[in-house]
Amino acid sequence: MSVPQLVIEGLHVTVEGKEIVKGLDLTVGGGEIHAIMGPNGTGKSTLASALMGHPKYEVTGGRVTLDGQDLLSMSVDERARAGLFLAMQYPAEVPGVSNANFIRQSLNARAGEGNEIPVLKFHRQLQEKMKKLNIDASFAERYLNEGFSGGEKKRNEILQMSMLEPRIAILDEIDSGLDIDALKIVAEGVNNLKSPQTGFLIITHYQRLLNYIVPDRVHVMMQGRIVKSGGRELAEYLEAHGYDELKAELGIEDESVQAGV
């Protein structure tokens, strides 16, 4: 299978009539881990939701391709079947639909009719992955995110990711609200999946996640676009100096999207 590639060119995104992402360029290839950092309200999560195709987010300009295919013309489920995955910050709760059933339906949707994964094989795989992520076996039959703690929801997103083996995985603030043990488990889930077959886009405002997942590229987002890119040392610089120093260096007074031109 070819190496995956996500190419974002000049992306503009509007939410409820307000432009949040204002001309963003980024290329993520298989085997690469990109981190997008930045203070709150700079458009990071909007980028993630727009790429997945959330109906509330309107793309008003630019181009996005996944493996050369026009991502923006695809419906949400088509994007997923093309290999895009978004670990969500606030995944929905769906009562009455078990985790296992949800994940199996997701896998089958990608495999297509006639290629469904055998039920026993699926459960064996699921149990294995759950064990690796230190998730209790009862998780499989619990209703999707219903009554889950914040940490359980995050682990569930990682479980889904490891089962679906996406070509491009976007993790939207997967570290928020996690204690250090849960953070390590989540990081391990990502590291286990690291291969030339998967590219990662990790959105976070803290550097601490990047102690466990080593990024190849770090991008800082302010005012709805990437204002600085670098290697992992950029994350360390931010940890040591904070965003304020970078803002001074770049001559940015207000980093929020409202301030963008």
Binding site: M52, V76, A80, F85, P91, E93, S106, A109, Q160, L164
Partner: peptide
């Protein structure tokens, strides 16, 4: 609609 979006985001049709 958030439930539909979530399920669709894993490849499941609407």
């Amino acid at each position: 609609p958030n439930q539909i979006y979530y399920l669709m985001s894993r490849g499941i049709s609407e």
